[in-house]
């Protein structure tokens, strides 16, 4: 199972996936209704990500691209360490992945990375492989959730020069 790479598309992630315009014209994180009611759990907690990015949508997009650039390498290292049955390395890489996932509020990835770290800590490496598959599946969902959507959004029209 290969790691989906979204960075070939310069429009990924689509910032319109991070924020939306509500009925009153206010800008709010996606996934949160104008009455602050949670909808379904999205691959990214956009509210948390934007809070950590001090509300800067462009910075959030840049952070997500950097995360995407690191993710494949981390998974490759996980696999290599697993093949070497190096539990310490698996735990260390999973810990790092847990941290970076948490930083970008990729909640599902964070949870799976924690499971891998915990398994490696007790040297249950036989269960790690399936978790890596889950990790890749969650990653694909995240990539898709941030994929550019069709058409211009109201949000883009708000921004100078449409940039």
């Amino acid at each position: 199972m290969s790691v989906e790479q979204p960075l070939d598309n310069p429009a990924w992630p689509d910032v319109r996936r991070l924020v939306a315009i509500d009925a009153e014209g206010g800008v709010r994180p996606t996934g949160i209704s104008s009455r602050s009611e949670a909808v379904v759990e999205p691959p990214i907690d956009t509210e948390g990500l934007l809070r950590r990015c001090m509300g800067n949508v462009d910075f959030a997009a840049r952070v997500l691209r950097r995360f995407a650039g690191q993710f494949g390498g981390d998974v490759d290292q996980l696999r290599t360490s697993l093949n070497d049955t190096d539990a310490g390395a698996v735990a260390r890489i999973a810990h790092r992945l847990k941290g970076t996932s948490a930083n970008v509020s990729a909640v599902r990835l964070q949870a799976i990375a924690k499971e891998i770290e915990d398994l490696a800590a007790v040297e249950k490496l036989s269960q790690v492989s399936s978790r890596i598959d889950e990790l890749l599946d969650a990653w694909s969902q995240l990539v898709a959730s941030m994929a550019p959507s069709e058409g211009q959004s109201a949000f883009h029209q708000l921004r100078p020069n449409g940039k």
Partner: peptide, 11 residues
Amino acid sequence: DELSLEMLENT
């Protein structure tokens, strides 16, 4: 971690 560093610096 570059990502963490960049987010902390920005904040």
